[in-house]
Amino acid sequence: MKNVIEQLINGLSTGSIYALIALGYTMVYGIARMINFAHGDIIMVGAYALYVGVSLMNLPIAAAILLSIIVCAVLGITVEKVAYKPLRKAPPLAVLITAIGVSFLLQNLALLIFKATPIPFQSVIQVPSVSIGGITISGVTIVTLVMTLISMVILTLFINQTRAGSAMRAVSEDKGAAELMGINVNRTISQTFAIGSVLAAIAGILYICQYQSLRPTLGALPGIKAFVAAVLGGIGNVPGAMLGGIVLGLIESIAKAYISTELSDAIVFGVLVVVLLVRPSGLLGKLKNEKV
């Protein structure tokens, strides 16, 4: 029983990282109707930026975190401006291929700069672990859960309470109508990419504090899994991404512990396939049909 609860807490912690990343996918999809394949690699950039800040520039931890967040936000906006914006009217296939190109570009730039050998990284989170009734929860896990919760509350408030947030909702509902109502669509899309990237940076920081090793491809797998989480929750749906991330984290953790470590990835992707076939709109999503 103790073991089960520990696994569930592990799952919750991985799941909340997936949820943070999935939010970026889902928001961008809701607004720009594209899968930002490079989103996973923003996590990697966030992780390396933290490493550069802490280990190479010897910045205080808070400053290094801020640096990582700013780098990611700027990168997110730049990628959108350079690679996606010119393709607003292009067929989806073209946008998808470009996004894959950007993802590949970021990975290979990191490979060129930091080389392929994994760089060990000491966690910047120094919170002692907590024991409750014989169950130990590590400090990193606690911080991850708390940070995710805070990020989600702030994001929900932002989307529902601010002008920029309501502009986002309007653009995702109907781009043309939003433009007619005087909303600057391009700025709104930029903001969405920035927010998604900030969340990715936070996810990246939490991720390497858990795994304590840096590789140029570290963002790829969590990125794809977070996408699965976004689809599971219903792509384009913000609460759905949070729920999807947590559910996926739990599934993965239980699969690893009780079925097979090697097959856990296969199970996670199997979930995606099943969801898309049985309920393509996801847990909380609405399905939109193409107008004939």
């Binding site: 690679a83 010119p86 393709l87 292009a90 067929p91 073209a94 291929i97 470009t98 894959i100 190109g101 950007v102 590949f104 570009l105 990975q107 290979n108 730039l109 490979l111 060129l112």
Partner: peptide, 16 residues
Amino acid sequence: MLLYSIALIAMILINQ
């Protein structure tokens, strides 16, 4: 691979 990815992006941007 870096050149590949740049070529991929450039190709789509130029064509589309």
